[in-house]
Computed example of a mutant assay.
Amino acid sequence: MKHLTFADKTMFVDDETADCVTEYAALLGTEHLADTVTVTVMGPDGNQSEATLLLNSATNLIAETTNFDARMADNTEAVAYMRKRIGELRNPPSPAFDERPHLVDLDEDDIA
């Protein structure tokens, strides 16, 4: 479990989610992009809720280890989404020649 500070809010999330949010936020910042991610968090009062985090180059985020141990809801979908986006940003697919709309496939008959 990690203590996540986002803007002026503090919350607890599982280690995998905290690490993934931090990695994704850093990558979005370096790429000058933004995204939102909704994760299940636990507040300091012990109540679980969903938090939608806006991640961009201005994101202020701290993830700290803690010895607090509680059962957290599953963030599998959010983590899978962030890992997929991290992979796409780090290894963008090469566009196929046919997918370039500004290029035209000319036949020999078209060239005069």
Score class of each variant (00 low, 15 high):
M1W: 10
K2E: 15
H3N: 03
T5N: 11
F6C: 10
F6P: 07
K9W: 09
K9E: 13
K9Y: 08
K9N: 13
K9I: 08
T10L: 07
M11F: 09
M11N: 07
F12S: 00
V13H: 02
V13Q: 08
D14E: 13
D14H: 05
D14P: 05
D15E: 14
D15C: 02
D15I: 05
D15F: 01
D15H: 06
T17N: 07
T17M: 08
D19G: 00
C20P: 01
T22A: 10
E23N: 11
E23Y: 06
Y24P: 04
A25W: 06
A25E: 03
A26K: 15
A26T: 15
L28I: 05
G29S: 00
T30S: 08
E31D: 12
H32E: 14
H32N: 13
H32W: 08
A34H: 10
A34E: 10
A34N: 11
D35Y: 03
D35K: 10
T36W: 10
T36Y: 11
V37M: 14
T38M: 11
T40W: 15
V41M: 00
V41K: 06
V41T: 14
M42L: 11
M42R: 14
G43M: 11
G43C: 00
D45T: 15
D45N: 15
D45F: 12
G46P: 04
G46I: 01
N47Q: 04
N47V: 02
N47I: 00
Q48E: 14
S49R: 12
E50V: 01
E50Y: 14
A51Y: 13
A51N: 07
L53K: 04
L54D: 00
L55Y: 03
N56I: 04
S57A: 08
S57I: 06
A58F: 12
A58M: 13
A58D: 15
T59W: 08
N60G: 03
I62M: 06
I62H: 05
I62E: 05
I62S: 12
I62Q: 09
A63L: 02
T65W: 01
T65R: 11
T66E: 11
N67Q: 15
N67D: 15
N67I: 13
F68Y: 08
D69C: 05
A70F: 06
A70Y: 04
R71C: 01
R71H: 14
A73R: 15
A73T: 09
A73P: 07
D74R: 02
D74T: 03
N75M: 06
T76W: 10
E77I: 09
E77R: 10
A78L: 13
A78W: 08
V79M: 05
V79S: 04
V79L: 02
V79C: 03
V79W: 04
A80I: 03
Y81W: 09
Y81V: 01
M82L: 11
M82K: 14
R83K: 15
K84A: 02
K84D: 04
I86C: 04
I86S: 01
G87K: 08
E88A: 12
E88P: 01
L89V: 03
R90C: 04
R90N: 14
R90I: 10
P92E: 14
P93Y: 00
A96M: 08
A96G: 05
A96D: 13
D98T: 03
D98S: 05
P101S: 13
P101A: 12
V104S: 06
V104Q: 15
L106M: 06
L106T: 01
D107V: 00
D109V: 11
D110P: 05
I111D: 01
I111E: 02
I111F: 07
I111P: 01
A112I: 12
